[in-house]
Design a protein around this nucleic acid. Structure first.
Lengths: 202, 202, 202, 202
DNA sequence: TCTTAAGCGAGACGGTACGTCGAGTCTTAAT
DNA sequence: ATTAAGACTCGACGTACCGTCTCGCTTAAGA
């Protein structure tokens, strides 16, 4: 019954959807987030302005839809069995993501916008690509039954330094991700080791 | 010689300068960074628009000037001799700064803007309030002669998790800063301890 | 043969036609000509937008079809034998038509539109409801064989003052139609009286 | 005191005002009233859109300001002493105005718009160029002390037929203005003649 | 005291993007 | 083939803010 009403009228144009997402992605790289306008996206995509507004409310939404899949993929790390090596690989992937990737540029712009736009903040809260990617590794290390809060705290410890480094515009070459991975690995080992014994930490 | 030409004409109005900075601060809190406009600042300050443009090029500059002093002050921690206690106090101050303070709101807005505006990024690179405040404590712990790179790496490890937590919109109550301080303290102790022996660790 | 091809497919819906005309009439009164839109008519009529465009090209056409019959009827005056009385009755009917009637509102809107849209002007030239109604009376007074030009000139003299009065937004109460009817009647009498003799007058 | 506040800020640009009025006049002739847009006027005038909206609310206001002076001038008739000749000259001027003049095109467009826009109707009520021009002649014929209502009624009788003829799109060549002038002259003579005796005819 | 030079408020200027609306066209499934 | 529905491209709407410009008016230093 609902299907009937859903199929009424002209269906959404997949061509228009893809053109908008591509245009947004291109414009972000070419002119930057601030100079990106809905008008510019529509014109570049060869699409009416109304068509953009019909499906997305803000340029943030467009950008998120355009980059979320790529981001997820770029931050995936295959399991090797060696925890510290995995962590190092992950932090390197994160560095490349934040400093060189298209999707990463979109993510940085969105996090930036979220600092003064609650709507964007809410949007990102539902699409925690960066947190998700870290939790995959960390739950392998700490066990699948680890509670969410412990996982999040570990995530912050792992990602935080790299995140801070790049968000405050520091030179990517000067950050020693290997040392961070080792430190984090040692910390995790302590935690999972003691978890059987006393479990006094946090 | 320069003084002569510099003193020609009517001198800059201190009244106007202060009014603009106050108006910017108020507006940031009331309407948010995005909805803050130069026109709005000028009107609220009872100042001509040209007067604003004469002394500041962007709203970011205004905001930085309006909040830098406050930020510096809010992030200062008095030395107690107990490293972990100092670190914990600092991380708590940082949390309050990022989540509750006026100046912190300005800082978050500026870091956000810096993600897509190189001019703001450059501005912040010259006013590293948050890095400066951390280095004060860390150089006490590691010694005044510690090299800048080591100091920065330690800064990232200390601040990063808290920074990440709040910039990704997580619940302030769920972050265990005491644990972070202790972890960081242990790591610093290891480093300064071995520095006398081999000093090989990064 | 033509009948076969003419009967192919779904026949035109009389329901849709009537609904569109009623909707147009209602909207003219409720929101005025300028705020009347094809989209609005279609929605109000519960009809697809394309259905409107298939049968009418402009809202003027719709309005004309919706009101022409009513207009013709409202401007008909039954013969009484007394010329001046007929003229006065006609001018009063014209006044009511132009100032109070639904159909009159449509007519005014169309004449207005015709001033800057040649298509509407052409449309109205083919549907001279107001001229037709006057000629019925005047040809009774001047004889059925009166030439068209004389008839049109007389029509202008009869209708013109009332038409001008209302199109320039003057107060309906202040126009003395009885005096106009009498003047016009005297003029017509002079013309038909001399027509037997010399017939020199214009 | 009021003068002081009136001189605050940058004064209005006479260049911009003139450019807008010229652009409006040109566009009316080139593309017609309906296709005339505020955007088009602003672009053609080399003026910001806001500048147009700052001084005029609608394109009707612009058009009125652009044409009122010309209209007044084109409809003036110099007194000759011969009433019928004056009336004939006036009706010919009116015909040229309504069918060939720039200002007349603007006037027709405005009267048209007034049929479905009360704001335009109100605007025209305050600038009755056509009525004013007729009253000048008629008050010469009927005496300067003639009451307004009598004057208006005579105005309608004089102008009405010509107005009707052209507003309903009839062929200008087929209207006998000389006959209308004579008829009207005779009517006026009767009225001023009897006004001394019985004065029963309003 | 009188000039000169710069800062001040106000506010109009030419631009450009905003988000909305209506135009007229096109593409579905259902009749 | 026509219907209702509704997405499509296009472009004007009126508003807001941009950064610049012209005004008349301070405000002080230097002649």
């Amino acid at each position: 019954m609902e299907q009937q009403s859903a199929r009424l009228g002209r269906p959404r144009s997949e061509r228009a959807r893809a053109a908008v997402l591509h245009a947004a992605d291109d414009l972000l790289v070419e002119v930057g987030y601030a100079a990106m306008t809905v008008k510019g996206i529509a014109d570049r995509a060869g699409v009416g302005r109304q068509t953009v507004y019909r499906w997305w409310s803000t340029k943030a939404e467009i950008l998120l839809e355009a980059s979320a899949d790529d981001a997820r993929q770029e931050l995936a790390v295959e399991p090797t069995g060696d925890l510290v090596a995995e962590l190092a690989a992950y932090l390197d992937a994160l560095t490349v993501f934040l400093t060189r990737s298209h999707a990463g540029a979109a993510y940085r712009a969105l996090i930036g916008e979220a600092q003064h736009d609650p709507a964007v903040a809410a949007l990102l809260a539902d699409h925690d690509v960066i947190g998700d990617s870290a939790r995959v590794i960390l739950s392998r290390a700490l066990g699948a039954d680890t509670c969410r809060r412990t996982l999040d705290q570990a995530t912050a410890s792992l990602i935080g330094p790299v995140f801070f480094w790049h968000f405050t515009g520091r030179d990517p070459a000067l950050l020693d991700t290997a040392a961070l991975a080792e430190t984090c690995g040692r910390q995790l080992a302590r935690r999972s080791g003691t978890s059987g014994g006393g479990g006094s930490a946090d």
